[in-house]
Design a protein around this nucleic acid. Structure first.
Lengths: 339, 339
DNA sequence: CACCGCAACTGAACCGGTCCAGTCAAAAGC
DNA sequence: GCTTTTGACTGGACCGGTTCAGTTGCGGTG
């Protein structure tokens, strides 16, 4: 594998390095004839561009960064992330971009990593997930002038480009579903309240239950299966257990479903469960889980596309990706008859 | 954020660019006094190295590559991958290396991606997962002279460096477990037979059941939840259903467990289930799943470490990472009384 | 026929580091 | 006291592209 450079191509095609560069990049400044010749020589020599050399002159890294501030263990349990990453990557690879993936233990490390990336010019832009209220990453990324797409609600984005799913409408649909089935008392097992989208769903849940006249309660967790199970146990063991539970992710719903067995509570006869995200796990449990469904892979792809647009000069904007739709399965049904 | 280069440092410290480079890299050729001065100036100016420029001269990319030849959807369902990636990344980031992650639809694309990476010098080394028998990636990577760590059994590695877990011993332990519980007829729901580690477990399963005198059967699937459920259904509906099933991953075990409910089969009273990998899902199902447990995050970290060693000149070698240990939970128990 | 404009192309600077071949003065050796 | 060695440092080539300021040749114009 001898390395072949544009200098060699220039020599063989009998033109200068500059002309070769123009020819290969489809830029004006060379005749069609010369361009064809250069391309032929490049082809013959089996030339491929050296991205590092290009990066040095154009000051671009052709890399997008994504930092996940959760442990590898947690990430592996949340089907959302891998699907999202896969969606991102699909779009990046079409343009020969690379995804730089980092996992960090906490926010401090995440901020430090952005600083480092910006200073070293290692990434052309970043994708930020799990946006919180008054998120410290937002001012930092503005200061660093790092092109950014936030994955979260416009109300949290402080004017930065964001891509979001309409949790409010979706939560309305979920609550309408249980109300239509005849439930009177519904609980929500939520993630941590400082997560922006959790807070938004809290609001939406409150509004929707008020609107439909349901009595409602909310338990906050850390999104883990363990806490999802624990929350379910507490809810179902209380004096007046809910007849329907809406979870903030799939993992907690699955954990909750499993817990019911231990408590002697049946699903859906005694309690209706609704998951959120609708990964494959919702289909394979028994009973299968009703879920608020959206295309996470597509979500990742949409985010990547917006980041490219941003680099190409698009103005910051909020983009609605989709509204999760109710996917009714076996875990939802009418409430048990009173008494 | 004005860009500060070593030229600027050189100017201010009153030395040449070359001296600055020596000073900053801890190389001989400058006095301690000068080195200290240069470091102070660099500190003051808040200098950070430009990795792209360094890469261009040293012809290193400081990036490792990982290609996953499965759909984003599948990856999101397999907790193994995200945990493994997290483990890899932890070690890489300690050394300021980047992980380039690609997902491709099939082997052809994977081979093409390695070719591209090698030609463009985009990665310093690669990690190869899901090694198959007579894997076409092995000769290619040898030809490309791309430092490689295979995640798989030495018998598949053809002399390349590999890191493996001892499935054979683990399978023996799993079979011993069901034998000790008194089972006579055990089934294995396996992945696709062309996967190297599936084939090895097939062999180990055959040997262990022969040794313990159990009657055995094997069903091959594509590792998906759907096929895991389908296989379970077929097994349990047959004339002589097994009283224990050992699955090749967690996903199929969970799917299998869920299917039992539909069939009116109880776990563990009627059938014992054993999963493989032991992600968090095994703990949250009901009943919780007995599983062959190993530390996937640590596995990823070990692989990354070996790849660094390889770059530093280590000879190719096979490294045993660990042997999955049985983690007994509620899903395993004695077989139902005969009749 | 002198002049202009333009397409086609050249040569060199540049991106920000690394690293090699020298230079030079002080220390060591004879 | 004169040569040799050594340590500290300089200058510049180099990595492989991009890009810009010029140069050249040619057809068109008044």
């Amino acid at each position: 594998m001898a390395r072949v450079t544009i200098r060699e191509i220039a020599r063989r095609a009998g033109v200068s390095k500059g002309a070769v560069s123009y020819a290969l990049n489809g830029q004006p400044g060379v005749s069609e004839e010369t361009r064809a010749r250069v391309l032929r020589v490049a082809e013959e020599l089996n030339w491929v561009p050296n991205p590092v050399a290009r990066q040095l002159s154009v000051a671009r890294s052709e890399t997008f960064g994504l930092i996940l501030a959760r442990s590898a263990q947690t990430l592996s349990e949340e089907p959302f992330y891998m699907a999202f990453v896969g969606g991102l990557e699909g779009v990046l690879s079409e343009r020969s971009y690379t995804l730089a993936l980092r996992t960090v233990p906490g926010t401090e490390e995440e901020l430090a990593a952005y600083r480092k990336w910006a200073r070293e010019k290692r990434v052309d832009g970043v994708v930020v997930v799990d946006v919180k209220a008054a998120d410290p990453r937002i001012p930092l990324l503005k200061e660093l002038e790092l092109p950014t797409v936030l994955v979260g609600d416009p109300s949290l984005a402080d004017g930065m480009t964001c891509v979001w799913t309409d949790s409010t409408t979706a939560m309305g649909e979920a609550v309408d579903h249980v109300a239509a089935l005849g439930h009177k008392h519904v609980a929500r097992v939520a993630g941590p309240p400082y997560h922006g989208h959790v807070w938004i769903r809290d609001q939406a849940f409150a509004a929707a239950t008020r609107r439909t006249g349901l009595s409602a309660e909310v338990v906050h967790t850390d999104f883990s299966g363990d806490q999802g199970a624990e929350a379910t146990r507490r809810l179902m063991s209380s004096g007046r257990p809910p007849t329907a539970i809406i979870y903030d992710n799939d993992l907690m719903a699955i954990a909750g479903l499993s817990t019911l067995g231990n408590l002697g509570v049946r699903c859906p006869e005694d309690v209706t469960l609704i998951a959120w995200d609708d990964s494959a796990f919702c289909r394979i449990t028994h009973p299968s889980l009703t879920a608020m469904s959206h295309d996470v892979v597509g979500y990742g792809a949409a985010v990547a596309t917006r980041l490219f647009e941003l680099l190409e000069g698009a103005e910051p904007a909020a983009h609605l990706y989709s509204t999760p739709k109710l996917q009714a399965r076996q875990s939802s049904g009418p409430p048990p008859p009173p008494g």
